[in-house]
Simulated scan of single mutants.
Amino acid sequence: MEHFEKLYDEHEKVHVRFVGFTTYDTRYDFGFIYTNMFFGKPLVVCMQTGRSALLDPKDIENIEYLQKAFHITEVRQAEELALFFNEELPTVPFQTQYE
């Protein structure tokens, strides 16, 4: 490891939540990882594709971002996903990670 400069190595107990749900034509399985890292944003992982994103309320409003992050081709599916995230993800005030 002499060629690497470690920037951080954090250990913490985190809260993880797994949610599976269906819409009219799609099934979703997500893991929500709540941590003190990432400026208070939960890490959302699609258990089917392995794609992940850090999401806050502004990210959820950005349908194009959700489409890109979770590789969703249909706008309607991304809008449904945004509605779900809006109801299920807590709104947390912005936190400074490096204080």
Rank of each mutant, 00 (worst) to 15 (best):
R51F: 14
Y28F: 15
K6H: 03
G20I: 02
G20S: 12
Y65W: 11
E99L: 13
T35Y: 02
S52W: 08
E79M: 04
H11Q: 02
Q48K: 10
Y28H: 15
H71L: 05
T23N: 10
K58C: 04
F21E: 01
T49K: 08
I72A: 03
T49F: 07
Y34P: 06
H15L: 09
L83G: 11
T26G: 02
K6S: 05
V14Q: 01
H11P: 00
P57G: 10
R51T: 04
P90K: 12
P57Q: 13
I60A: 03
E64S: 14
F85D: 06
F4L: 04
P42T: 10
E74W: 04
C46L: 04
R17P: 04
D56L: 04
E88N: 14
Q97W: 05
L66F: 13
E5S: 07
R76H: 05
K41M: 15
A53C: 05
L43M: 11
A53F: 02
R51Q: 14
D25Y: 07
I60W: 03
V45S: 02
N62R: 09
N36K: 14
G20H: 06
Q48T: 08
E64V: 13
A82H: 09
F85Q: 07
T73A: 04
Q67W: 04
P90C: 10
N86E: 14
D9G: 03
G40E: 03
Q77E: 07
P90Y: 13
E64M: 11
H71T: 02
P93E: 11
F94N: 03
K13C: 00
T91P: 01
F4Y: 06
F84Y: 15
S52A: 13
P57I: 04
K6A: 05
D29G: 03
P57S: 11
E12A: 06
F21N: 02
R27H: 08
E10Q: 05
M37E: 07
V92E: 14
E88C: 06
F70Q: 03
P42I: 06
K13Y: 07
Q48N: 09
R76W: 05
E61L: 15
Q97R: 06
V19S: 07
F85W: 13
A53D: 04
L89M: 11
G50D: 12
R76K: 08
K41V: 03
E87Q: 11
A69C: 07
D56I: 02
L83I: 03
T23C: 13
K58W: 03
A78V: 00
T23D: 12
T91V: 14
E87L: 10
P93L: 06
Q77L: 00
V19G: 02
T35P: 01
F38E: 09
T96F: 14
F21Y: 13
N36F: 10
K68D: 06
F38I: 07
E61S: 15
V45I: 12
H3D: 13
Y34I: 03
M37V: 01
T35C: 05
P93H: 09
Y24R: 09
E2Y: 09
Y98G: 00
E61N: 14
E61K: 15
T96M: 15
A53I: 01
Q95E: 10
T49G: 10
Y34L: 07
Q97N: 04
T26Y: 14
R27W: 05
L55F: 13
F4G: 00
T73R: 08
E5N: 09
V14T: 01
V75D: 05
K68E: 12
V14D: 00
